[in-house]
Amino acid sequence: MDFELSDDQRAIVEAVDALLAQHAGPKRAIELFASGEYDAALEAALDKAGFLDVALGGETGPLDAALCVEAVARAAGAVAIGASTLVAPGVVGRTLPGPIALASAGASPIVRFGAHARTLLVADSQAGLARIVELSAGDAEPVRSNFGYPMGRVARGLQKSGEALPPGSYERLLAWWRVALATEAAGTMRSALTVTTDYLKQRRQFGRSIASFQAVQHRLAECAVMVEGTRWLALEAAWRGAPVEAAATAVAYATAAAARLFLETHQLSGAIGYTREHNLHVFSMRLEALRLELGGVGDHRRALARARWGGAT
């Protein structure tokens, strides 16, 4: 048990942070979002620097990949980082052509990165397996959305096509998808909270800093507990290779925390928080997207309970 970064891990995190300082950040996220673009340049830079296959390295593994995912989420990178660095390596054992979108057969056809994806990983619950679908032009269309990521609508028939992966792949896909969601949520929440505390420290009302009011402090402190809890649960689940129960635990906690973070950060930030001039929305709207994906908090909690104690679906 060691919660401190090793020298190698620190080097990875510092390198990815340095790359992100150049290629990402809320300002860039706002620009890209206005045009509905995917950040192909960022993905290429991450790929070139070797961050997309860090889970598959000899010396590195899923925890190192999760640290990269968390960093990209903190910097609001508009790339499918969780799917590329955690889900594909965890499910298929290799990287897949990006961008990668994740979908559940039979669920909503609107998925994150759907319109830009070259690869669609589908969780087919009926068949009990996962599928890899190569997407070509016309397979998906952009969907106008406020929820922080470029969204696309994938043609329905596609979710039953493509290369079927072996038995067990459905459970693996769900577990890694959950770990990826929790990890992305951890980074996104951290930034939402930082944006909020920074603003409230300098914003003065009633002759004092808003952040000095105890009623405000307690709510922010509770948010901090949830952000920390999400982070350790996600990183531990990644380190353990996404066991079903640990993965469901991390995402069940993360999605409940995300709902609370959205509510508190917006409520405490006031009207400025809803504007595109302020950075909160970059992170907060994404939290809502992460929270609703893959069935949402109710499904995650039930999956956790079944994994731990049994009980039919």
Partner: peptide, 25 residues
């Protein structure tokens, strides 16, 4: 245990216990 409401409440509580475990660690 097959009751989805029971599952959801148990799952919620378990996740909260696990977060507390790691924060203590």
């Amino acid at each position: 245990l097959a009751d989805p409401t029971v599952q959801e409440r148990l799952g919620r509580a378990r996740a909260i216990c696990e977060a507390a475990r790691l924060l203590s660690y």
